[in-house]
């Protein structure tokens, strides 16, 4: 019995060690293999493929924005960019240095700046939930404009020569102010007799842009189109022109309600940003699709804001990456400064 007990313990010991090792290896292997799922089959909706000939722009530069939640973007002049977000207004030089930091009392929702054609060039108009504040470049508060209505929810500002337009998603109207903050009127009221349904908005995006041709362009997202209002003629209640159509193809606006942001070039062409698949596209003056600035390959999320400069560059506020990304036309000469990113 002694010998047998002896043998027993030896056998038991060895086999126990082996068994422990085997089971541990098996369990570890099983556990490790369980999270090695490679994303082979895409479960997410896939965007359109793009013809390289339609890629009209390339990224020329980008500047990191020191904000948790960048909301809006405007161009002050050739060299300066204004970014609003969190509770602050940041003025950047294009190389990325912060020139000015203006603290705000509440989160801004939109921003615009007077161009050289504006009555007060370089004035900064900041839209909050239901009112507008006007700053100069030194950061001094010039004026606080009364809310058009208490329930206003201002999502976009556009500046023309003598007028300032504010898009109010709550009332589904675009308010027109003069530069002193006097309310002059509004656009977008439905006119049954002319079959104009007004702004049909079922999503939290509403954008306006002023053009040099005396028209104010506003997106009518649910109708998948952009409408031009003649603000010089106060009698004109309905848009004088509209363009755009819904389409799953690149040449139209995708889904239920697009585009989300627009900007108008000096020559009257349009840049649009979409949600869903975050395309930024170029359309001609007449509204024909010309090409693509950026798409899902470049942008992880829909653009938070969009603006264009005199050199036909497109500036996109990429809130996910917390960057302003500057796209330059491919044929332009001005592509030198940030090839180092490659």
């Amino acid at each position: 019995m002694t010998a047998s007990t002896h043998k027993l313990s030896a056998i038991a010991g060895v086999s126990a060690l082996l068994a422990v090792a085997a089971i541990t290896a098996t369990v570890v292997g099983l556990l490790l293999s369980s999270d090695r799922r490679v994303a082979d089959v895409p479960s997410q909706p896939q965007p359109q493929q793009i013809d390289p000939a339609l890629q009209l722009y390339r990224q020329a530069a980008e500047l990191a924005v020191a904000l948790e939640e960048p909301r809006a973007l405007a161009l002050l002049d050739e060299q300066r960019v204004v970014v609003a977000g969190d509770q602050v207004l940041l003025i950047y030089r294009r190389d990325g240095t912060v020139l000015k930091r203006i603290a705000l009392s509440e989160p801004p929702q939109c921003v615009a700046a007077g161009s050289s054609h504006h009555l007060y060039p370089q004035r900064i108009y900041v839209g909050f939930r239901n009112h507008v504040k006007v700053f100069d470049t030194a950061g001094d508060l010039i004026a606080v404009w009364q809310p058009p209505r208490d329930n206003a929810d201002l999502l976009s500002i556009a500046v023309a020569q003598r007028d300032v337009f504010v898009a109010d998603i709550s009332n589904r109207l675009v308010w027109r102010y003069d530069t002193e903050g006097r309310l002059l009127g509004s656009f977008g009221t439905p006119v049954k007799s002319r079959g104009y349904p007004g702004f049909v908005i079922t999503t939290r995006y509403f954008d306006v842009a002023a053009s040099n041709d005396g028209l104010l362009y506003a997106v009518n997202p649910r109708l998948l189109r952009i409408e031009g209002f003649d603000y010089t003629n106060p009698e004109q209640q309905v848009p004088v022109r509209h363009w755009g159509r819904g389409s799953p193809q690149l040449d139209g606006f995708f889904g239920c309600c697009n585009p989300i942001h627009i900007a108008v070039f000096a020559d009257g062409r349009f840049a649009t940003a979409e949600k869903g698949f975050p395309w930024v596209k170029i359309f001609s003056r007449q509204g024909e699709f010309e090409g693509v600035v950026a798409g899902p390959a470049e942008l992880a999320a829909p653009a938070a804001d969009l603006t264009v400069d005199e050199d036909n560059n497109v500036l996109v506020l990429d809130a996910a990456a917390k960057r302003v990304r500057i796209f330059a036309p491919k044929n332009s000469q001005d592509v030198s400064d940030s090839d180092k990113r490659q």
Binding site: R129, R149, N151, D153, S170, R172, I201, T202, T203
Partner: peptide
């Protein structure tokens, strides 16, 4: 509509 202060998600 006379309620201010909250962001609006516009229903039809």
């Amino acid at each position: 509509t006379l309620i201010a202060g909250e962001p609006v998600y516009p229903l039809p």
